[in-house]
Amino acid sequence: MFGLELRDLTKAYGDHLAADQVSLSIPHGEFVCFLGPSGCGKTTVLRMIAGLETPTSGAILLNGKEITNEAANGRQFGMVFQSLALFPHLNVGENIAFALRLRGVDARRRKDRVAELLDLVRLPGLQTRAISQLSGGQRQRVAIARALAQEPPVFLLDEPFSALDAKLREEMQNELRALQQRLKITTILVTHDQREAMTMADTIVVMGGGQIQQHGPPVDIYRQPANRFVADFIGASNLLPVEVLDPRTVRLGAISLRVAAACGLGAAPATLAIRPEDVLISRMAGNGDNEVAGVISQVRDMGAYVEFRIDCQGQDILGVAMPRDWIGAGVGETAHVRLPVDRCQVLAR
């Protein structure tokens, strides 16, 4: 396979499995985001890919060749660390040229390459600037340029934007995505920020408990979460405890709801997942499927939309609506909630 392949990658620290049989194929040129909460094993997997951690078992293959036991300095995957890890005793140009100097690239070519990379990250002419004289965003760019200097086969980033303010983070995310698309370099980014993953990645790998919970395009991950963990972690979700009555019907308390499919779950307790933006809220009763009357228990005006928490026969349902439809809405008012059949997803509890 042309690209990077992880086969049953496992890392154990004593009894604790930081990564548990992680298997994944990443085609050449793809942008993959490992997403998950703290301690889910995403950084451990990234460090094993970089060669900074030795897997307990499993294999890593690059373009079909096994590199599991190759040291980090042999793999030479460009990596941007969370702390950026720039060398404070070297200036910008020397930092970027570090890998080239190690490879014995002559001074003239080094100089040209540094200038080219500084242009790429939009910092032209900063070769002689000391690292201590750079702003947060500039340091970020220098770290990216340094990691790309050696033209790595795989580009790794470990939560590189976590220390930046929201505006600069978004700017850097856009720049990195544009850069990756221009260079067509296989890129793996580790983040706990789902917005970052959703906006940048070709493929999101959701990790939890050291295992891959789901991987796929961002929209699929959002629209069709594979399990309760993914539905809960990615975006806001109503996760309602239901009982499966038959493959097309579930029971939520005293309410029967139709669903698109609840196959393979038998009569076991399950979870009905539906996104707040898929919940239809109306002041007037309709005659559609899955409609329940409830009482508004909380209203949060977010400006662009209004968020409602509605008590439907003891079940708390979160929904959003346009502000213009709900002028003057208040707690205690009756609302009619409809859960569209095709948006109701039944997951194992």
């Binding site: 060669g51 300095n73 969370q82 890890a85």
Partner: peptide
């Protein structure tokens, strides 16, 4: 910061060159 040494390793530096080119100058 151990990440500084790890960064040098990902750029192809051996342990010896990491020590001589990164650790020693930082400890000047």
């Amino acid at each position: 910061d151990p990440e500084v040494e790890q960064a040098a390793a990902t750029m192809g530096a051996s342990r010896l060159s990491t020590f001589t080119r990164v650790v020693l100058p930082m400890m000047r």
